[in-house]
């Protein structure tokens, strides 16, 4: 019988931690600039490296890898939470439009921030607010007396995403974010223009959300059985839902405010993890944080190097992987819904 013992938790999490650290090391060692591992290491140790190497390693690669890890962890955990709360393995903050809401909030703060004299922290906070509003809207439309229709969820997400994208383009054009490139990167999701000064905010949001979600692992398991079963097994359902949806919005707000609309991480990572370690949220939540970090660091490293000096947006890589997986899962979900 599969049991969640301390040994199993430690085993899985240490294996994933090794994977994440390995991905980060590879990420720092790899890039379009042709640096040898010795050069990178000596720069990190602040030895006699040349200033040019120092700039690349310490100002470009290391922050980039750290941001990718933070964004990946946030998106993967958000996917886990959303899937449990909506009892739907297809739920993903990107597909359901919550990322779109966050992006709209973030771009509003970015474009108006300069004229209103807002601090940098306004962007993640506004993205968080946008995610909360999108979640409220999603529930208001798709949740009818406790019953959440998958079709309604997906349609609401699709339409809201289209609306949010239009809003983003509109706001950005108004503010004269003229060079369409920045808007493009925000819409498809990229770390190339990521603001390193927001890393502290993102890390703080992630830590708070994990501090809420990991201890709620057991409640998430029960909520995945359904609201009624959760209540009957001792969960204060309404309270847990509120707290976890807020944690979810923190995660999405954090990720989107630095990387824009990177899609499908919250779908791919939890799905693979359920195959590998099972669906127990007491393990799945921290495992998703580590695996999500590793996953996005790898994707971003590919995005930086695949075409040589020309960089791909990382959102294009995750969408190329996630789109087909989503369709496959949708097909299977559909088949199961009509199974005898």
């Amino acid at each position: 019988m599969r049991v969640l013992s301390a040994g199993r938790v430690l085993g899985v999490l240490s294996a994933l931690l090794v994977l994440t650290l390995a991905a980060m090391v590879i990420g720092v060692l790899t890039g379009p600039a042709d640096l040898s591992p010795e050069q990178v290491v000596s720069s990190l140790l602040n030895a006699e490296a040349t200033p040019a190497v120092n700039d690349i390693v310490r100002k470009v690669r290391v922050p980039r890898v750290l941001l990718a890890a933070l964004v990946g962890a946030s998106l993967a955990v958000a996917g886990v939470l959303f899937q449990a709360l909506l009892r739907n393995p297809l739920a993903d903050p990107y597909v359901l439009g919550v990322s779109g809401g966050a992006a709209l909030g973030g771009i509003a703060a970015l474009t108006l921030g300069a004229s209103l004299g807002l601090a940098a922290g306004a962007v993640p906070l506004a993205a968080f607010a946008g995610a909360v509003l999108a979640t409220v809207l999603l529930y208001a439309i798709a949740n009818v007396r406790g019953f959440v229709s998958a079709t309604h969820l997906l349609l609401t997400g699709v339409v809201f995403n289209a609306f949010a994208s239009a809003g983003i383009v509109f706001l950005a054009s108004l503010a004269g974010f003229g060079e369409g490139n920045r808007i493009f990167l925000w819409l498809i999701g990229s770390l190339s223009a990521a603001r390193v000064d927001l890393a502290g905010w993102v890390a703080a949001f992630l830590v708070i959300a994990l501090a809420v979600a990991w201890p709620a692992g057991r409640a998430l398991n029960l909520l995945a059985l359904g609201e009624e079963a959760a209540r009957q097994l001792g969960v204060d359902v309404a309270r847990q839902q509120r707290v976890l949806l807020l944690a979810n919005s923190l995660l999405v707000g954090a990720a989107v405010s630095v990387a824009g609309l990177v899609g499908f991480v919250g779908l791919i990572v939890p799905h693979l993890l359920r195959l590998l370690v099972g669906p127990d949220h007491r393990l799945l939540v921290p495992a998703a944080a580590l695996a999500g970090a590793a996953f996005l660091v790898i994707c971003d490293t590919v995005a930086r190097t695949l075409l040589g000096a020309r960089e791909l947006p990382v959102g294009a890589i995750t969408a190329l992987l996630g789109g087909p997986l989503f369709l496959l899962l949708l097909r299977r979900h559909h088949a199961r819904a009509f199974a005898p």
């Binding site: 969640l4 013992s5 057991r218 995945a224 097994l233 001792g234 099972g278």
Partner: peptide, 29 residues
């Protein structure tokens, strides 16, 4: 309950163990 549908691949043993939730410590393994 009358009907049971669980959208995730929990094993039967894991579902039975969930019955221990009201007795477990909050963070409990």
């Amino acid at each position: 309950p009358q009907d049971v549908s669980i959208p995730f691949p929990f094993r039967a043993g894991e579902v039975v163990l969930m019955g221990r939730s009201p007795h477990a410590r909050r963070f409990g393994l």
